[in-house]
Design a protein around this nucleic acid. Structure first.
Lengths: 204, 204
DNA sequence: CATAGGTGTGACCGGTCGGTAACAAGCATC
DNA sequence: GATGCTTGTTACCGACCGGTCACACCTATG
């Protein structure tokens, strides 16, 4: 009678429900802004079950960040299957994919938001966040290098900063702020690094 | 005897002490991570005095954000006095100033951090943050235009995103992450917009 | 000396937080 | 039917939160 908030009906385990619910609530209320009891109730279960699966709230936070990380990994797989053996197309596809994310996800990056929100420097989430962000940047740099773009480290860092900046700009000033020109800024940066290759006689 | 934590001795008023202490503690612990009582004690006063000057914690938050805004305004004044009538030098000076800020302030932008942390969309701080960020971007765009750089809106947004991205990257991955190449990325973007002007036969 | 305004003190309020204990209920397997 | 595992329920704990109260204090001005 009081059971389903359209979540418990499915055969999803309590654990899965807790994680996905926590993801959503951390996003909308902030990690510090929502309590474990509210998460458990929203996931159609209770606090005791939550604590049987996750030793602490911090553990649950880390789990949700791992989920967010794995979703980002799926994006890379999608790129390499859609443009196999064409790294330059993958770079362009990365921009397009990020534009789409930006439009559909106004809340910024879960990992970056957690980094801002969790000030305790020894929080286990920080290690997760750092390794994730570093890996993303590394992968982007390799892609730029494979695509024959000049100064792949600089270009990867530029694109990384543009993306990160676009996401926090969306939070602060909405989609009519600097984020509105994210795509143009990325394309311009990429073409600049492509042009320099041609000038050096390497490319095309 | 127990009075000074090296703060109350000076003739600064309790109000000033509260604001400056709150700025520091919000930065190090997060707005949600520090209580009004702890702020009052760290400012060598008490909670009652705090509430006599600020009606609520939210009011105090807004006040600290206004202080942060005014510090940013001082940076613009400094630029225009150091390079009067030379907008292009001011653009370059903006980059240098931001590089310095980035190196000395590892905690990111107070305003942006507050925007991430405060999820209640009706929080009075959000209006402050939006108007501040919009004004910063606007001023940068005007400067780029005066400097004769092409597509000043795109360049201003690019620089804004690079700055914002560099600041959150510093939080997530330290000063060896993408933020390490913030200056090079900015200079490259600026010179690209300068080059296009020359190509069009306008400049120099 | 009297007054008044800003300040300090400590207790208090209701609420929420993360986390735990004890016990009942469901459910599959043997 | 008995076993054991996962779940649900309720109450509880100590701590902290934002915010208020009543009252004492200090100091400057009249």
């Amino acid at each position: 009678m009081k059971k389903s908030t359209a979540k418990a009906d499915a055969k999803t385990s309590p654990r899965e429900r807790i994680v996905s619910t926590a993801c959503a609530l951390f996003r909308s209320h902030g990690i510090r802004g929502i309590g474990v009891d509210a998460i458990a109730q929203a996931a159609d279960t209770n606090k005791m079950t939550l604590y049987r699966h996750f030793g602490s709230k911090d553990d649950l936070v880390c789990e949700t960040l791992k989920v967010a990380s794995s979703k980002a990994a799926a994006l890379w797989d999608d790129l390499s299957t859609r443009f196999p053996g064409n790294p330059r197309a993958q770079v362009d596809g990365w921009v397009s994919a990020r534009v789409d994310c930006l439009a559909s996800e106004p809340y910024g990056c879960d990992l970056a938001n957690a980094a801002v929100e969790l000030k305790e420097s020894d929080h286990p989430a920080h290690a997760l966040i750092e390794s994730f962000k570093t890996a993303q940047r590394q992968r982007l740099e390799e892609l730029c290098r494979e695509a024959g773009l000049s100064e792949p480290e600089l270009l990867a860092d530029t694109l990384s900063m543009l993306l990160e900046g676009a996401r926090v700009s969306r939070i602060a000033t909405g989609d009519q702020g600097p984020a509105a020109r994210f795509e143009r800024a990325c394309r311009a940066a990429i073409s600049a690094h492509a042009a320099r290759v041609e000038e050096a006689g390497v490319g095309h």
